[in-house]
Computed example of a mutant assay.
Amino acid sequence: MTIAYIRRGERMKGWMMGDTKQVRAAVLLIGDELLSGRTRDINLSEIAKFLAPLGVSVAECRIVPDEPDEMVAAINHLRAKYDYVFTTGGIGPTHDDITADAIGAAFGQTVDVRDDALAIIEEWYAKTKTPLTESRKRMARVPSDAILIRNPVTGAPGFQTGNVFTLAGVPKIARAMLEDVAHRIEGGAVTLSRTVATGGLREGDLAEGLGVLASEYPAVSIGSYPYFYEGSDGEIQRGTNLVARATDEKMLDEVVEKLADLSRSVGGKPVIDPPDAK
């Protein structure tokens, strides 16, 4: 964990020194339960938030079922297109946990119970006084050339194969595994984000001006996000949050001021970087 924090600091320092390299990642969410709606994903958000300070932007996310061919196709496509890929799900002890097999097939590696992974699991289950069944030994099945990723929550490791990091599907475990990933990442320019809250304004009030700004500042991502909530008097309160994202801090500051000016020009009272934007 200490290494992760040191590396994040180094990456921030690199950005302050003018690092402009763009590093992109993809997230591959695996599991029928996600597509059925039974399970709601929060791993994408956690991974994206973890990577941002390291200078890595998540550029794509996919969800695939527990179908080997579709998993392999997605893995191969994403690992060729992006600097890093993060998969979640499918490395547990049950019959449908087949992510290790899909990773092995994608990289042309054999998959079997590995002694180093099994030793970690044996130690963990002995410590917790839990029977180590044959099903649980499945969690030690890892591609032959993969590097293990530490799991401080339940012991069973994830693994890195090339530029693909394979994490557990349970959010608490996946987030903990990321701490053993940070020091393996070579990031680039850190993308900064700022918000201008425009209470009372609708997107339509701002659309024309936003289009002009987007044309003037193509290196800045500008998004508008309307919100609605019921006030204390029962009336519906509305507004729009304007979010600007860029790697150039000076340019980002310019855009934020212009977003505030735009809000004022159509009768808004902008609040820059509100502590709890709705």
Rank of each mutant, 00 (worst) to 15 (best):
T2C: 03
A4T: 11
Y5P: 02
I6P: 02
R8Q: 15
G9W: 07
M12H: 10
K13E: 04
G18M: 04
D19G: 11
D19Q: 15
D19A: 14
Q22G: 04
A25T: 06
A25N: 04
A26N: 00
L28Q: 09
I30H: 08
E33H: 06
L35T: 13
S36K: 15
G37N: 12
T39Y: 11
R40F: 11
I42Y: 03
I42L: 10
I47R: 00
A48P: 13
F50H: 14
F50Q: 07
F50K: 14
S57V: 04
S57H: 01
I63A: 15
V64Y: 11
D66K: 02
E67Y: 08
M71D: 02
V72I: 15
A74F: 11
L78C: 12
L78K: 03
Y84H: 04
V85M: 02
F86T: 02
T88G: 10
D97P: 12
A100L: 08
A102S: 13
G104I: 13
G104K: 13
A106D: 01
A106R: 11
G108E: 12
A119H: 07
A119M: 11
I121S: 01
E123R: 14
E123Y: 11
A126R: 14
A126S: 10
K129D: 12
K129Q: 05
T130W: 09
P131L: 15
L132K: 06
R136I: 03
A140I: 08
A140S: 15
R141L: 03
P143H: 08
D145M: 10
I149C: 13
N151S: 09
P152E: 11
P157T: 06
G158V: 05
Q160W: 08
T161G: 07
G162R: 00
T166M: 11
V170D: 13
L178T: 09
V181I: 14
A182D: 02
A182Y: 00
I185Q: 04
I185M: 14
G188W: 07
A189E: 14
A189H: 05
S193W: 05
R194L: 09
T198Q: 09
A207G: 04
E208A: 15
L210C: 02
V212F: 04
A214V: 11
G223C: 08
Y227V: 03
G231W: 03
S232R: 11
E235H: 15
I236G: 05
I236W: 08
Q237P: 00
N241P: 02
N241C: 06
L242R: 01
K250F: 08
L252Y: 01
L252I: 03
D253F: 01
V256A: 00
A260S: 05
D261I: 07
G267P: 06
K269Q: 07
P270G: 00
V271W: 02
V271D: 01
I272F: 03
P275S: 10
D276P: 00
